[in-house]
């Protein structure tokens, strides 16, 4: 069963196999959480939204049809709940630069992804500063650009899937991604020369 596709596991769960549901949760929990926490920018609220996402999957299991990829369906649910949470404005606050992105003890922090473990001390220090700046810059992106950047770069989804999830044309997704990248590039401009100059 471990090698089964998501869609196959969802059908097995629909037919009553709880173990299949657990496999789906295990497979996607971290990635969906990473998407949610970067959207809502609050670890406790992200846990609530993650729970509600999987509870909605359970509730909708009987109606599940293989019309779209399971991940597209899953992220659509998560994204809609994030939008609802943002509308309610509960726990809405600026992202802390000191706190880890998501307080997730398992997930590598963004800082660890960007800093090169094999690099020299100076380079590592620059990497850390740059990662923090990156984190701040992502948090400051407009919601519609941030969600697309996260779905593409963190969750590794295709543009056509992202278009289905956010409910807009693929070209709009691509242009929002382009704007997001431009803003991030501007935010990190000062580090380009430093990073190149460090040993």
């Amino acid at each position: 069963m471990r090698d089964d596709s998501d869609e196959s596991l969802m059908f097995r769960y629909r037919d009553g196999d709880v173990r299949a549901f657990e496999l789906l949760v295990t497979r996607h929990r971290k990635a969906v959480y990473n998407f949610i926490v970067r959207f809502v920018r609050d670890a406790a609220q992200a846990e609530d939204v993650l729970q509600e996402t999987f509870l909605r999957v359970i509730k909708s299991a009987d109606a599940y049809e293989k019309q779209a990829k399971f991940t597209t369906w899953l992220y659509t649910i998560a994204r809609n709940l994030c939008v609802d949470a943002a509308r309610r404005g509960k726990h809405r606050r600026a992202a802390s630069l000191d706190a880890p992105v998501n307080n997730d003890p398992e997930a590598p922090a963004l800082i660890e992804r960007i800093a090169d473990a094999g690099a020299g001390v100076d380079r590592q220090a620059i990497g850390r500063q740059m990662a923090l700046r990156m984190q701040e810059a992502i948090a400051q992106l407009p919601d519609e650009q941030r969600e697309i950047f996260i779905l593409r770069e963190v969750n590794d989804l295709q543009f056509n899937e992202i278009a289905d999830i956010v409910g807009c044309p693929e070209n709009t997704v691509k242009s929002r991604m382009r704007y997001a990248l431009e803003k991030l590039r501007e935010a990190l401009e000062e580090y380009r020369d430093l990073a190149q100059a460090a040993p």
Binding site: Y13, V18, F21, E22, V25, T26, R29, Y33, E47, D48, L50, Q51, F54, L55, V57, I58, N103, D104, P105
Partner: peptide, 25 residues
């Protein structure tokens, strides 16, 4: 249901005892 409990456990990051006492879960 068991599936709901699995979803709830997987979404929380804490010890089991604290989870069981959390009235919002």
């Amino acid at each position: 249901s068991v599936a709901q409990l699995i979803a709830m456990l997987a979404s929380a990051r804490r010890d089991l005892k604290g989870f069981l006492l959390d009235q919002s879960r």
